[in-house]
Simulated assay, not measured.
Amino acid sequence: MTLYIGREASKLWKRICAETTTEINLLLDNWKYLLAGLIFQYIHGLAARGVHYLHRPGPTLQDLGFFILPELGQDKGYISETVFTCVFLSFLLWTFHPFIFKTKKIYTVLVWCRVLAFLVASQILRIVTFYSTQLPGPNYHCREGSKLARLPKPESVLEVLLINFPRGVIYGCGDLIFSSHMIFTLVFVLTYQKYGTRRCIKQLAWLVAIIQSLLIVASRKHYTVDVVVAWYTVNLVVFFIDKKLPELPDRTSGNLPLLLPLSTKDKDSKTKEENQKLLNGNSVDPADWRRRSEVNGKTMEDANGLHADTAMNGA
């Protein structure tokens, strides 16, 4: 038993080391994209902090979701945050699963490059929308009478740049259309939908995304329009950007191929074309046909010479 555990631990360690080497090589080639994506996350937080200075509390707008969904209350606002944290951590762990499990379909660095590209494009649209029009926040700390609803003018540039993390991120106001939580949730779900392998987990992920949407409205953290706009905007952003980005290489070959492998349909059509040419008496490649002719001609010449020599000796 001890020998078996030691052998399996040794295999796992070798797998982790091999995967780490591969990912480091990919990181050296793509670190600029990852760094740019991470820097923009700070810029997005800075923009959300800036719009808080412009926020003016007012009466909560009429909202269909507020009529349909019961209000959870201020003491239960942690429920939606807990669901989002579970989604974030689950996706993070899944992107690192090739380091441990044998079934490998993705490269961690390349997946995060795509995820950050989706996030940056969606967040740029979000910054444009919530700076275009400032709406009175429906959250409890953004309503009239709350000390956090309006921020006093900053005393220094450093106060703005530090964005009062993490309190300034949690208790922000004015960055409504569209929901940042839904951007992250939908990007994670769409990424797993494409590269994940478990169908049941994909279905569960979409169900959790729907529940997350309802909890955000029930917690009065966003208006219903913030969630609805996020659903179709993020899906469209991922759809169009995913077409522009190069496809992830296939891991079944065990290395990084330079070219994408042919699909099964392409392979079948190519095989049928080759068989058809052979049935018609032609080889697959004209160069092969020429080489075969030359070989056949040489064989014929050698055979004729052999018969000629035999005739002369007989004479």
Results as ranks from 00 to 15, higher is better:
residue 83 V to Y: 04
residue 12 L to Q: 04
residue 165 F to N: 06
residue 307 H to Q: 09
residue 49 R to C: 06
residue 53 Y to F: 14
residue 268 D to L: 13
residue 6 G to T: 05
residue 7 R to L: 12
residue 161 L to W: 11
residue 29 D to A: 12
residue 22 T to A: 07
residue 305 G to Q: 09
residue 296 N to A: 15
residue 299 T to D: 15
residue 139 N to C: 05
residue 9 A to Q: 11
residue 279 L to G: 01
residue 314 G to D: 14
residue 125 L to H: 06
residue 240 F to R: 03
residue 180 S to I: 00
residue 31 W to P: 00
residue 287 A to K: 13
residue 59 P to R: 12
residue 199 R to D: 09
residue 98 P to M: 07
residue 265 K to L: 03
residue 11 K to F: 07
residue 130 F to W: 04
residue 247 E to V: 12
residue 151 L to K: 10
residue 58 G to D: 14
residue 100 I to S: 05
residue 210 I to H: 07
residue 5 I to R: 14
residue 244 K to D: 01
residue 275 N to S: 08
residue 82 T to N: 05
residue 199 R to N: 11
residue 6 G to E: 15
residue 245 L to H: 08
residue 248 L to E: 01
residue 90 S to W: 15
residue 135 L to K: 02
residue 233 T to E: 01
residue 42 Y to K: 00
residue 90 S to A: 13
residue 62 Q to H: 15
residue 297 G to A: 12
residue 231 W to T: 00
residue 155 E to C: 10
residue 306 L to K: 10
residue 5 I to W: 08
residue 194 K to P: 06
residue 33 Y to P: 02
residue 270 K to H: 10
residue 91 F to R: 10
residue 227 V to I: 13
residue 248 L to Y: 08
residue 214 L to E: 02
residue 231 W to S: 01
residue 213 S to A: 11
residue 225 V to H: 10
residue 245 L to N: 04
residue 113 C to W: 07
residue 171 Y to R: 01
residue 213 S to C: 14
residue 163 I to D: 08
residue 94 W to A: 06
residue 39 I to W: 08
residue 54 L to Q: 03
residue 131 Y to L: 05
residue 12 L to C: 03
residue 120 V to I: 08
residue 64 L to V: 14
residue 257 P to L: 10
residue 190 L to R: 05
residue 298 K to G: 03
residue 174 G to S: 01
residue 160 V to L: 11
residue 175 D to S: 07
residue 44 H to Q: 10
residue 187 V to D: 06
residue 307 H to T: 15
residue 245 L to G: 04
residue 217 V to E: 02
residue 46 L to N: 07
residue 36 A to T: 09
residue 250 D to S: 03
residue 310 T to W: 15
residue 256 L to T: 09
residue 64 L to Q: 12
residue 232 Y to Q: 06
residue 274 E to I: 14
residue 24 I to N: 10
